[in-house]
Simulated assay, not measured.
Amino acid sequence: MQRFKDKVVVVTGGGGGIGGATCRRFATEAAQVAVFDLDLDAAERVAEAVRAAGGRAQAFHCDITARDSVNAAVASAQQALGPIDVLVNNAGWDVFKPFTKTEPSQWDKLIAINLTGALHMHHAVLPAMVQRKQGRIVNIASDAARVGSSGEAVYAACKGGLVSFSKTIAREHARHGITVNVVCPGPTDTALFADYKEGAGNPEKLMEAFTRSIPLGRIGQPDDLPGAVLFFASDDAAFVTGQVLSVSGGLTMNG
C-alpha cells in the first residue's frame, strides 16, 4: 500500500521504540518522514534504517520543551520536505515513583515533555494546516490517562490533559478539514518501560503480573502501535476525529 505517497509526516520522539517503529511503517507506505528527536544520533539511526530499506526519511534535532527549537525544526522540515501533512506527537518521558515521593522539579519536567511539548508542536504546525485546509494529527497518550497507573500520577495527569486537549482541538479545527485523534498504548516493551520495571524493584515479578493481566497474554511491542497510528493518519479515517483508541492487548476496555 502507498496510502501516504509523498505525504510529509513528522514524528516526535522518532528515535525511540514506538516512534522509530512508526517512522519505519510510514516509510513503507511511501511517506516522507521527518524524524524529530532530542537525541539527534538516535533520530539519524532511524532515518538511516529507513533509507537503507528504500524509504525516505530525514532526521531533525528537536527539543519539544523549547519553542525556539520546535520552530526551527518545523521550519527545517518544511524547507527540506515540504508542507507537513501528518503530525504524530509521540515523544514522552516518565519517572516511576509514588506521588508523595516525587519533587516539584520532576513535575515540571514531566509536564514540559508530556503536555507542553505537544502544545508547542500543535501551535507550530496547525496554522499551515489551517491555511491548506487539511491535516492529520495523532497524539500518543497512554492508558494511564484512561484508568490511572500507580507510580505515574503526574505522567497520567499529563496524558489525560493531552486527551482532553486533543478532543478540543478536534472540535476547533474540524471545519478546517483537520482531524485529531489519540492512541493510548498499554505496557509496551520500550526503554521507558524498562525504566519502569527497574523502578519497581522486582522486574521479573512485575512482568509476570502484567502478562497475567493482559487478556492477549503478552506485553506490547513497538510494532504493535503503528497500525493504529497510520489508520488515524490515513484517508480511511477521514470521518474520524476526537477519538481515543487503546492498544493494550485488552488490558483496558473502554467504550
Rank of each mutant, 00 (worst) to 15 (best):
L162E: 03
A59R: 00
Q79E: 15
A128W: 04
I140V: 14
G14V: 04
A75M: 03
A42S: 14
R218E: 03
P222W: 01
M253W: 04
I214A: 13
L162Q: 11
N139L: 06
L206H: 07
V130T: 13
S166K: 09
E44A: 01
A124C: 06
F232N: 08
S248L: 02
G20A: 03
I178K: 12
G161A: 11
L81G: 00
T22Y: 02
D224E: 06
G135V: 12
Q32M: 13
R45Q: 12
T28H: 07
V180Q: 09
V180Y: 06
Q134R: 15
V240H: 07
E208D: 13
E48I: 01
T241Q: 10
T22V: 12
A118W: 05
C184T: 08
T252W: 04
G161L: 10
A52S: 12
V8A: 08
A233Y: 06
A194G: 01
V46L: 08
N90Q: 12
R218I: 13
T252N: 09
Y155E: 09
I64V: 15
I169M: 15
A118G: 13
E208G: 10
P203T: 05
G15A: 01
V86G: 04
L162Y: 06
F231W: 13
G255W: 08
P83I: 10
K133P: 05
D41L: 03
E48N: 04
D223C: 01
A30C: 13
G177A: 13
T116R: 15
L81T: 02
E29C: 10
A145V: 06
V86I: 15
E44D: 05
I214E: 07
F193T: 02
Q32K: 15
K5A: 14
H176L: 08
S105K: 15
A145P: 02
G250K: 10
G199A: 12
E198Q: 14
L230A: 06
F60A: 00
